[in-house]
């Protein structure tokens, strides 16, 4: 009987306590943020979306390499000698056309590791978080503003230039070989042979011949040294040789990869062009 009354009293007391609490909360200010109309103040240094200032990008690929999830894809083309791409705002010389700078925000893990290596501070995290989309491909942000035509033009230009350079080199080599051969023919009479020409010409020719001979000699020397060294290195330590091989292989692999990528990009672009047509 006493227990019954006691329990009843406790029940009512606790219920009224509880009701008092809920009554107070009925009139406390709600914590809801009416989102599209109101927004929370974001903390400093929030990591919400990547943004790239392409004017400052030098195409160094440090961000691409830093990314732990490989969500950044960068494609570059060397600029030709007659093109001046200008400087970044930090004073770096731009030497590469950045024809592709894609960041897949669907893959991005917001670690910000790409931001810090950037020498020109052109890749940054910005305060935009409303970029959800119905299509996964919409989350791939393309920052490069080069059109496929431009890219093609630049690449064609580079190829032309490379071709020219190669040609020049070959010509130079051919000329050198010729000079060498000639030099071998008339060993000491270089100056005498051209005595029939004007003085200036003769002088020039002589100087050239001298230079070439010198260069040839240097080259021969170097080659001899190289051969000696390499044989010595091979004998010295297998480890270092293996290491250098490794890095060589690495380089080779990377180059191959890059070329493959470029080829893929080119193919893609062509396909796109075709489909557009």
């Amino acid at each position: 009987m006493v227990k019954l009354l006691n329990d009843t009293y406790t029940t009512f007391r606790t219920i009224f306590t509880g009701m008092g609490i809920t009554w107070r909360h009925l009139f406390t200010k709600s914590v809801t943020v009416q989102y599209p109309a109101q927004r929370d103040v974001l903390p400093e240094r929030v990591r919400l979306k990547l943004d790239v200032n392409m004017d400052d990008c030098i195409g160094c690929r440090l961000c691409e390499r830093a990314c732990p999830v490989d969500c950044i894809t960068i494609g570059t083309t060397k600029s030709t000698d007659d093109d001046d791409l200008g400087e970044t705002s930090t004073g770096h010389k731009k030497k590469l056309w950045v024809d592709q700078f894609d960041i897949d925000m669907a893959k991005c893990c917001y670690c910000e590791l790409c931001v810090h290596p950037c020498p020109t501070d052109c890749i940054t995290m910005v305060e935009d978080y409303e970029y959800s989309s119905y299509d996964r491909n919409d989350l791939i942000l393309s920052f490069s503003d080069m059109t496929p035509e431009q890219i093609e033009e630049v690449q064609a230009k580079l190829e032309r230039e490379e071709e020219e350079k190669r040609k020049k080199k070959e010509e130079a080599r051919a000329a050198k070989e010729k000079a060498k051969a000639e030099g071998g023919k008339d060993d000491a009479g270089g100056g005498a042979a051209s005595s029939g020409d004007t003085d200036a010409d003769a002088e020039k020719a002589a100087r050239r011949a001298e230079r070439e001979a010198k260069r040839a000699a240097r080259k021969a020397e170097r080659e001899g040294k190289d051969a000696g060294e390499s044989s010595g290195a091979a004998g010295e330590s297998g480890g270092s040789a293996a290491k250098s091989d490794d890095t060589d292989a690495d380089k080779e692999a990377r180059r191959a990869e890059r070329e493959a990528k470029r080829a893929a990009r080119k193919a893609e672009r062509e396909a796109k062009k075709k489909s557009e047509e």
């Binding site: 009925l26 009139f27 200010k29 709600s30 809801t32």
Partner: peptide
């Protein structure tokens, strides 16, 4: 509304 406000929310708005 009562549920919302008692839980410091707003309910339908």
């Amino acid at each position: 509304k009562v549920a919302g406000h008692m839980q410091d929310r707003l309910g339908p708005m």
